[in-house]
C-alpha cells in the first residue's frame, strides 16, 4: 500500500505553480522524509495529501487509493502543521476535550497517560506551555486519533535539541507500537539521517529524487581523484555534483549496480544521506531518480500555465 501516491499532481496559487507534474509513491511502513529548499512545494504536497487544500491538477490518493478528504482518509491521517496548531487560550484539558469531540476515534486514556508522563499540566493554557511541550501536546492529540499515517510539517523547527529528541522518540515509539507510517518534512538533514528510511527530494515543485534511503545510498559514490581527469570522466559517469580544487576533484556519482565504474587511480567512498541530499539540492537540474514502479514520472502530461 502507498500512503501517498501522486501522478502529475499540480497546484498553483495565482499564476505561480507550487507543485507541478508531481509524481511519487510513498509506501507504507516507512518514515519518509520530504526535503527541499523553501518554496519547493513541501507544505503544498502535505496539505494536498491531508485534504486541507484542493489540487489545481488532480492526481493524488492516500492510504491505498483513497481520495484525500474522504471519510476514511480523514480518519486515517493525522496532520501536525508547521506551527504546532493549538488554541493558545484553551487549557490542555480543553484541547483534549475538543479534539475528542471533533474526531470519530480518540484514545483519551492513552493521551492522558502520555501527557502525565511528559509532565504537562492539564490545567495550563496551551499558549503558556514551552515550545517543546506545545509540540508534544499537538503530537499527543494527533496520535490519540490512532492514525495510519502521521504527517508532520517541519515538526522540529522550533525545538531545542532535547525536545527534538523526545519528540522524535515519541513518533518512533508510536511507529513501533501501532505501525503508523510517517511522512515528515524537515530542513534538519542530520536528524533525518537517524529516522528516515525513505527520501523524497522536491525541487521547484517537482520530484527530483525519490526512493528508499538504503537503495539511494547504495546507488551513489563519492569519487576522489586528480582534477585534471575530472572533465574526462564526467562525461562517462552520471555526475550529480562535482567540486574541484586545484589538483583534486570530488565527484558525487550515481551508479547502476556495478562497482566497476571507479576510474583507475580514483578512490570511491560511500556517501551519507546528508551528503547525498546536499549534492542534489546544489544541482536542482540533476536527473530525478525513479521511485517505486507505480506513480513514477513515466509519462509527461502537458500542463498549461
Amino acid at each position: 500500500m502507498n500512503v501517498i501516491e501522486a501522478r502529475s499532481l499540480g497546484k498553483h496559487y495565482g499564476s505561480t505553480w507550487a507543485l507541478r507534474e508531481c509524481s511519487l509513491a510513498i509506501p507504507a511502513g516507512h518514515v519518509a522524509a520530504l526535503v527541499g529548499p523553501n518554496g519547493s512545494g513541501k507544505t503544498t504536497l502535505l496539505s494536498l495529501a491531508a485534504g486541507l487544500a484542493v489540487p489545481s491538477v488532480v492526481g493524488v490518493t492516500v492510504l491505498g487509493g483513497r481520495p484525500p478528504g474522504s471519510p476514511v482518509a480523514l480518519d486515517g491521517i493525522a496532520f501536525v502543521a508547521q506551527d504546532t496548531p493549538l488554541y493558545k487560550n484553551l487549557s490542555v484539558v480543553d484541547m483534549l476535550h475538543l479534539t475528542r469531540n471533533l474526531n470519530r476515534r480518540f484514545d483519551q486514556a492513552s493521551a492522558q497517560a502520555r501527557l502525565a508522563e511528559l509532565g504537562i499540566p492539564l490545567k495550563r493554557k496551551a499558549g503558556k506551555l514551552s515550545g517543546g511541550q506545545q509540540a508534544q501536546l499537538a503530537l499527543t492529540l494527533a496520535l490519540a486519533r490512532r492514525p495510519r499515517l502521521l504527517v508532520l510539517d517541519e515538526p522540529m523547527a522550533m525545538l531545542d535539541p532535547l525536545a527534538r529528541h523526545d519528540f522524535m522518540a515519541t513518533v518512533m515509539a508510536a511507529m513501533a507500537d501501532d505501525g503508523v507510517s510517517v511522512v515528515l518534512s524537515s530542513h534538519v538533514l542530520a536528524e533525518l539521517e537517524r529516522v528516515a528510511d525513505y527520501l523524497v527530494l522536491l525541487s521547484r515543485g517537482r520530484v527530483q529524487v525519490a526512493g528508499e534511503v538504503e537503495d539511494l545510498l547504495a546507488g551513489h559514490r563519492l569519487l576522489t581523484g586528480p582534477a585534471g581527469e575530472a572533465e574526462r570522466y564526467s562525461e562517462r559517469l552520471s555526475v550529480v555534483h562535482a567540486s574541484r580544487g586545484g589538483t583534486q576533484a570530488h565527484l558525487l556519482v550515481r551508479q547502476n549496480g556495478t562497482d566497476g565504474l571507479v576510474p583507475p587511480g580514483w578512490e570511491a567512498h560511500p556517501v551519507g544521506l546528508e551528503e547525498l541530499t546536499l549534492a542534489y539540492l546544489r544541482e536542482p537540474g540533476a536527473a530525478a531518480l525513479p521511485g517505486p514502479a507505480r506513480g513514477r514520472d513515466a509519462e509527461h502530461s502537458e500542463v498549461t500555465t
Partner: peptide
Amino acid sequence: VASLAINPNT
C-alpha cells in the same frame, strides 16, 4: 526506538 529516537525498521 524510544530511547534513541531511531526508526524501528533500523
